[in-house]
Design a protein around this nucleic acid. Structure first.
Length: 275
DNA sequence: CTTGTACCCTGACCGC
DNA sequence: TGCGGTCAGGGTACAA
């Protein structure tokens, strides 16, 4: 379940190792993880021999920028994982190998994806620009002010939790950190997004940033599937305040945490102190 | 335009 | 011990 902190952790793990390296060969074992266009065979053909200029992240996408006007967009979705080395470091953790990228330093970048919901896409800069333009602001960048968040929420009748998950409104939040940020700001996830007053938006803004920064410092959350590069676990799961705590007492007021379903996703919150 | 729902996929888990 | 049903959720497609 990689969200912004998990994808950013992976980007940091890989950036120094991959920048400047040439991809000498590509093997795709699970064709459905390559999203067309161009299709798996053409993907292999067009990525082989290319040099990686740099690694970026936008929302939950990892971007391998290639020399020449193209990039590989990676979506990990639920179970995508990377390993880097001359062989798989922990074969027990990589039992659904989906693709391999041989590098010019003798190492291979392994991609494993149990459920194959994730995948790769080769995009031109122009195609990426049109996708990128539809994404909301990056919550950890300077430009993400309380006013920017207010603009994303205003006039929305949908529950604030749903709006936080909408990547067109705010980029990078997923189910775990949306729930955590709402708990930290003491806001009921069922509230209509547009009903938040300025002070509440400010609280939510501060909570989103603080939660994501804290998670990033702890290399993300390993709840069930996520692992950073080479099987490294995150440590933020020990710091979760509400996510996955249904029935347990609220760490702030002692009321039992409840779980509801919003937009087909579970939301954990405390009815005692989130209003 | 907004909002809600189904779907993709596998493995873990639960009740019987 | 096995077996069917449910759930996990990111992103997208599509319907209302």
């Amino acid at each position: 379940m990689p969200e912004l902190p998990e994808v950013e952790t992976i980007r940091r793990d890989l950036a120094e190792e991959l920048s400047g390296r040439t991809i000498e060969a590509v093997r795709v074992h699970q064709p459905d993880i390559v999203l067309p266009p161009p299709g798996p065979a053409a993907f292999v053909d067009r990525v082989s021999g290319r040099r990686i200029d740099s690694l970026d992240r936008r929302a939950k996408y990892l971007l391998l920028r290639l020399l020449g006007d193209e990039l590989v967009q990676v979506q990990l979705r639920m179970t995508g994982r990377f390993a880097l080395g001359t062989s798989l470091p922990d074969p027990a953790e990589f039992t659904h190998l989906a693709a391999e990228f041989d590098l010019d330093d003798g190492r291979t970048l392994f991609y494993d994806d149990t459920r194959r919901l994730g995948g790769f896409r080769l995009l031109s800069s122009a195609d990426w620009a049109s996708i990128e333009a539809k994404l909301g602001p990056e919550p950890l960048e300077e430009g993400f002010t309380a006013a920017v968040l207010a603009a994303a929420l205003t006039d929305r009748h949908a529950p604030v939790k749903n709006v936080l998950l909408d990547q067109r409104r705010v980029a990078g939040l997923g189910n775990i950190y949306a729930a955590e940020a709402l708990f930290a700001s003491r806001l009921d996830p069922r509230r209509a997004a547009g009903s938040l007053c300025a002070e509440e938006v400010e609280r939510l803004h501060d909570a989103i940033r603080a939660t994501l920064l804290d998670a990033l410092e702890h290399a993300g959350t390993t709840f069930s599937d996520y692992l950073a590069v080479n099987g490294r676990s995150g440590r933020f799961q020990d710091r979760l305040q509400v996510y996955g705590r249904e029935g347990s007492p609220c760490l702030r007021c002692g009321e039992p945490i409840v779980r509801i379903v919003q937009a087909g996703r579970s939301t954990c919150f405390c009815p005692g102190c989130q209003h």
